[in-house]
Write a protein that binds this DNA or RNA. Sequence first.
DNA 1: TCCTTATTGAAAATAGTTTTCAATAAGAAA
DNA 2: TTTCTTATTGAAAACTATTTTCAATAAGGA
Lengths: 145, 145
Amino acid sequence: MNWQDKLNKEGLRLTTPRRVVISVLEAAGVPLSPQTIHQRSLDADEEIGLVSVYRTLEMLTDLGLVRRVHGHEACLGYVLASPGHHHHLVCRSCSTAVEFSGMDDLSTLIDHIQEETGFLVDEHMLQFSGLCPQCRKRTPHHDQD
Amino acid sequence: MNWQDKLNKEGLRLTTPRRVVISVLEAAGVPLSPQTIHQRSLDADEEIGLVSVYRTLEMLTDLGLVRRVHGHEACLGYVLASPGHHHHLVCRSCSTAVEFSGMDDLSTLIDHIQEETGFLVDEHMLQFSGLCPQCRKRTPHHDQD
DNA sequence: TCCTTATTGAAAATAGTTTTCAATAAGAAA
DNA sequence: TTTCTTATTGAAAACTATTTTCAATAAGGA
């Protein structure tokens, strides 16, 4: 299903600002902040309002079509999300973000945690950072820098 | 080692504002925002500047003595951290935060991810939310897992 | 107690995000 | 295509969060 249909299905319209936000995210492939997305729309001569960037990101996040990615210190930004998967792996050198599913290993962990703590775990946030294959090659040593 | 020594060891001073921030965090046991910490200092007739709250949190975070806790949407706040452990489990009802270690299960997961993606994983952020034992009891149904 | 200097707090500066509202344009219907 | 309804836009203002500046203060070693 294309973006047009995805939005129309929800009674939403595929407008120019929304199209631009989506294409910027598609072109980037790394988490981008609202400010960065706005700047890139200017760079591409597709000026849209910063306010619309915020509203579009909120809408797409609600629909599960983009995901917020966090670092330890702050929110890194937003990336397009494929539905159903919830985890990101971000390269700390080039910021490339990859999605992965790890529910099998994770459900074991969740079981252990529930036993240990007595909590009922129903939501989780798991993110990894490291070096992507390209940046590993570029780095002389394979340890950590 | 007490707080006095922990700070002095680093050439830092244990001042009244720092003492207040720490005691508010100790008393809370749940993640608190800078604003909330400030408000509680007023409530306790221990007025300190909001600016000092920010600076104290930054300092304690740098020393690894407090940790930022994130939710999917935003930063939930700061909690005291015991050194070495990195994961939090937060109750979505009462915000109680518990630390846990899950490195055994997690290292399996990390191995799998490294194989699948070719990334070198060197940092991770893992947080869970759910219901703590007390809030489970208060909740009528135990249905959804 | 004295002295050095890390730290404080008020205000101002900066940054990030949300709300308001009249004007616009998407997309369904004719 | 044209018309119509209303979701959406964008500029400005409001709001909230965070950082910087700097003179005054106080922590803790000598």
